[in-house]
Simulated assay, not measured.
Amino acid sequence: MDIAKKIDHTMLKAEAGKDSILRYCEEAKANHFASVCVNTSYVPLVAKALSGSGVKTCCVVGFPLGAMSTKAKAFEAKQAVADGADEVDMVIQIGALKDKDYDYVREDIKAVVEASKPAIVKVIIETCLLTKEEIKKASALSEEAGADFVKTSTGFSTGGATVEDVKLMKESVSDKMQIKASGGIRSREFAEELLAAGADRLGVGNGLLLL
C-alpha cells in the first residue's frame, strides 16, 4: 500500500516558525504526501513552496475549538483559499451539536463550504468529545452541508482517531463522502488499521514515521 499519498503532513503547533513549515514542505515533496496542513497564516508560504509539486496546500479553519462565529469561519476560509489553500479542514461548533441545534451546525458547515469553493472541505467533528449517536449525527450533517470529508479530530483535545470511530463515521455517510483520521497516528501499523476501517486520508504530525 502506498501510504504516502494518503498523508496530510501536519504542523499546527503555535510555536511553529517559518523554517519548520518549509521543512515540512520539503519532506512532503520528497515523499509525495497528499498535502501539508498548516494554520491559515502560513498558507501563502506553503502554497508558494509546494507550487507545481502535486502536493496540496491544506489549512485549518475555526481551529481548534470550532466555537468562533460562522461569519468568522467563512471569512477565514475564503481568505485561505484566496491565499492558495486547496483544502480546508474546519471544526464544527461542538456545543451546538451537543445542544441538538442541528440547523446551526449544518449552516455553519455550509457557510464554510460555500466560502471555500473550489477547495475541498473536511469537517472536524472532534470524536473524543462526542457520543456514538453524536458522531453519527455530525457525520450526516457534514454530508448534508456539502462537505467532501468528515474528520475525526483536531489532535488538540482529549483524544485522537480510533478504528471504532472511523468505522462509525463510514457507516453514517454515503460513498460520496470520504473519511480523514487524525490525532495520535504514530505508527504504520495503526495507520493501516485506520485505512482498513475506512479512512481515506490520515492527518499526521510527522508523516515520516509511517513510511
Rank of each mutant, 00 (worst) to 15 (best):
K78G: 06
V81I: 03
V81Y: 04
A82W: 01
A82P: 01
D83S: 10
D86I: 04
D86V: 02
E87D: 12
V88Q: 06
V88L: 05
V88G: 04
M90E: 05
M90A: 13
V91P: 05
I92G: 00
I94D: 01
G95T: 00
A96N: 03
L97A: 00
L97R: 00
K98F: 00
D99L: 01
D99N: 10
Y102P: 08
D103S: 10
D103F: 07
V105F: 02
V105R: 00
R106F: 04
I109K: 00
I109M: 03
A111M: 08
A111G: 15
V112W: 02
V113D: 08
E114Y: 06
A115D: 06
A115K: 05
S116F: 07
S116D: 04
P118E: 13
P118F: 10
A119N: 10
I120K: 07
K122F: 14
V123M: 14
V123Y: 12
V123W: 13
I125W: 02
L130A: 08
T131L: 14
K132R: 15
E134A: 04
I135S: 03
I135C: 06
K137V: 10
K137M: 15
S139T: 13
L141N: 02
L141E: 04
E143Q: 15
E143N: 15
E143T: 14
A145S: 08
A147E: 09
D148W: 04
D148H: 12
D148E: 12
D148V: 03
V150K: 01
K151I: 11
K151T: 09
S153M: 08
G155H: 07
G160A: 05
V163Y: 09
E164T: 13
E164D: 15
D165K: 03
D165A: 15
V166D: 10
L168Q: 14
K170R: 15
E171F: 07
E171W: 03
S172G: 06
V173W: 04
V173P: 11
V173A: 08
V173F: 06
S174D: 05
K176W: 07
Q178S: 13
I179V: 13
K180F: 07
K180I: 08
A181M: 06
S182I: 02
G183C: 14
G183Q: 07
I185S: 09
I185D: 09
I185M: 09
I185K: 02
R186Q: 12
S187L: 15
F190A: 13
A191R: 15
A191E: 11
A197Y: 13
A197S: 12
A199R: 09
D200G: 11
R201P: 02
L202P: 04
G203Y: 04
G203S: 07
V204G: 08
